[in-house]
Amino acid sequence: MKSVLRAAGPVFIIGIALIAINLLLAFLAPWISAYDPIASNSDAALQGPTAAHWLGTDMYGRDVLSRTLNGGRYALLVTFLATTIAVAAGALLGCLVAFLNNWIDDVVMRVVDAILSVPTILALLVVVAVFGSGMWVIVLAVVVVYTPAVTRVVRGAARSVSSLDYVTAAKARGEHAGPIVVREILPNVLDVVLVEYAMRASWVVLLISSLSFLGFGANPPAPDWGLMVAENRTALTVVPLATLGPIVALATFVIGLHLTADGLGKKLGVDRAMTGVQ
C-alpha cells in the first residue's frame, strides 16, 4: 500500500489526504462538534473567535465551527450519490454506444448534445421546481445533467479502445455486445472513468453548494456550506470567519479532488484533456 501511494506521487497523496480529512470530519461531525449546529443563541450573536467559539458565531449566535463541521454532510452525501450514479451510467452507456458505432450511437449522441446544450443550472432549477428540493430529487437532477457529459467523455476513450485488435478478436469470435463491453472495453477505460469521477465530483459539490447558495438546496436552518455563505456574506466585514469557514472547507475538498484527478491522470497515463487524441 505504501509503495503504491509513493508511486502515485505527492500530488495524489495530498489530494487523497484532503478528501479523507473532509470526509472524516463530516462523518464524525455529530460527535465532535461542541454545539448543536442549529441551536441559536441571541446573547452570543456575531462574535469573533473566542475560546468557547473557535470560529465565532453567526447572526443567530450559532457556533460557526459546529455548523462548518456539519455543513458538509449534506453536500458530500449528495455529491457521492449523484457522481457515482452519473459516472456509472455514463461509463456504461459511453462504452456501449462507442462499441455499437451505429444509428443508436447517432441517436444517443444527438440527445446527449441536446441535453448538454441546455444550461446545467436551468435544467437543475426546472427539476427542483417540478419535484421540490428533496435530496433524491437533487441527486436525480444532477444525474440527469451529468450523465450525458460522462457519456461523451467515456465514449471518446472507448472509441479508440473498441478499434483495437482484442476487441476485433472478440467480435470475430461472435461475442455479444454485453460481454465485449464488460470484459474487453470497460476495464481498459477504467483509468479514464476514475479520473472522470474525481473531476465530476468536484463540479458536483460546487454545483450543490451553489444551489444551496441560491436557495434551492438545503433549507434553513440546516447547516450547509453554500447556505452558510448566503446567510453570512452580508456580515462579511463583521464576522468574516462565518463565511470563510465553510468556503475553506469546500475549497480544500475541491482542491483535493482536482489534485487526485491530476495525480491519477499522470499515474495512469490519462491526460484528462487529451485522452483519445494520440
Partner: peptide, 19 residues
C-alpha cells in the same frame, strides 16, 4: 465461427492488457 480464426499483425494490441 469456430472454423475460422484470426491472428493479428500487432501482438501489442491483440491481447486485452487487463486480462
Amino acid at each position: 465461427r469456430r472454423m475460422v480464426q484470426l491472428i493479428f499483425q500487432n501482438a501489442d494490441t491483440s491481447l486485452n492488457p487487463r486480462r
